[in-house]
Amino acid sequence: MPFIETEDIQRGENVYLNYQDYGEGQPVILIHGWPLSHKMWENQVQAIVDAGFRCIAYDRRGFGDSDRPWLNYDYTSLAQDLRGLIEHLDLRHCVLVGFSMGGGEVVRYLSMFGDDRVDKAVLISSIIPLVKKTDNNPNGVPEDKLDEIMEALKTKRVTFLAEFSKQFYNYSDNKDKVSEEQLRYDWAITSAASPRATIETAKAWANTDFRPELRNVTVPTLIIHGEDDQIVPIETSSDQSSKEIRNNKYIQIKDAPHGLFLTHKEELNTALIDFLKS
Results as ranks from 00 to 15, higher is better:
residue 176 D to T: 13
residue 160 F to T: 01
residue 239 D to R: 11
residue 228 D to L: 01
residue 230 Q to T: 10
residue 207 N to R: 11
residue 215 R to T: 10
residue 169 Y to R: 03
residue 227 E to R: 11
residue 200 E to P: 00
residue 176 D to H: 15
residue 172 S to Y: 06
residue 241 S to G: 00
residue 166 K to F: 02
residue 208 T to L: 08
residue 236 T to G: 14
residue 217 V to P: 07
residue 230 Q to G: 00
residue 228 D to G: 00
residue 241 S to H: 06
residue 222 L to M: 09
residue 224 I to F: 08
residue 207 N to A: 11
residue 147 D to S: 06
residue 196 R to G: 04
residue 178 V to F: 04
residue 218 T to W: 04
residue 171 Y to H: 09
residue 238 S to C: 11
residue 196 R to S: 12
residue 159 T to C: 02
residue 210 F to E: 09
residue 223 I to Y: 04
residue 197 A to T: 05
residue 166 K to G: 05
residue 215 R to N: 02
residue 142 P to V: 07
residue 204 A to D: 10
residue 162 A to M: 08
residue 223 I to D: 06
residue 193 A to Q: 12
residue 156 K to Y: 00
residue 230 Q to L: 14
residue 148 E to N: 01
residue 189 I to P: 00
residue 158 V to Q: 12
residue 178 V to L: 08
residue 226 G to K: 03
residue 186 D to N: 14
residue 215 R to F: 01
residue 220 P to A: 12
residue 199 I to Q: 12
residue 182 Q to E: 13
residue 200 E to L: 14
residue 207 N to C: 07
residue 179 S to L: 03
residue 143 E to A: 14
residue 209 D to W: 13
residue 217 V to Y: 10
residue 239 D to H: 09
residue 173 D to T: 03
residue 222 L to D: 11
residue 167 Q to P: 00
residue 157 R to V: 06
residue 193 A to M: 08
residue 161 L to R: 01
residue 171 Y to C: 04
residue 177 K to I: 01
residue 178 V to I: 15
residue 242 S to Y: 07
residue 196 R to H: 11
residue 235 E to K: 11
residue 211 R to E: 12
residue 160 F to N: 02
residue 168 F to Q: 12
residue 156 K to S: 06
residue 191 S to L: 11
residue 226 G to S: 04
residue 169 Y to M: 13
residue 223 I to K: 01
residue 206 A to N: 13
residue 182 Q to D: 15
residue 209 D to R: 11
residue 210 F to A: 01
residue 234 I to A: 08
residue 239 D to A: 04
residue 157 R to F: 06
residue 226 G to N: 07
residue 194 S to T: 03
residue 142 P to E: 06
residue 229 D to G: 09
residue 172 S to P: 00
residue 190 T to D: 10
residue 224 I to D: 07
residue 186 D to G: 02
residue 182 Q to V: 09
residue 173 D to C: 05
residue 206 A to I: 03
residue 240 Q to S: 05
residue 161 L to E: 10
residue 221 T to V: 05
residue 184 R to C: 06
residue 193 A to H: 10
residue 182 Q to W: 08
residue 227 E to P: 00
residue 233 P to S: 03
residue 164 F to S: 01
residue 181 E to H: 10
residue 242 S to M: 05
residue 146 L to E: 10
residue 201 T to E: 13
residue 203 K to A: 04
residue 167 Q to M: 14
residue 235 E to R: 08
residue 232 V to W: 00
residue 190 T to L: 02
residue 223 I to R: 03
residue 148 E to F: 00
residue 207 N to H: 12
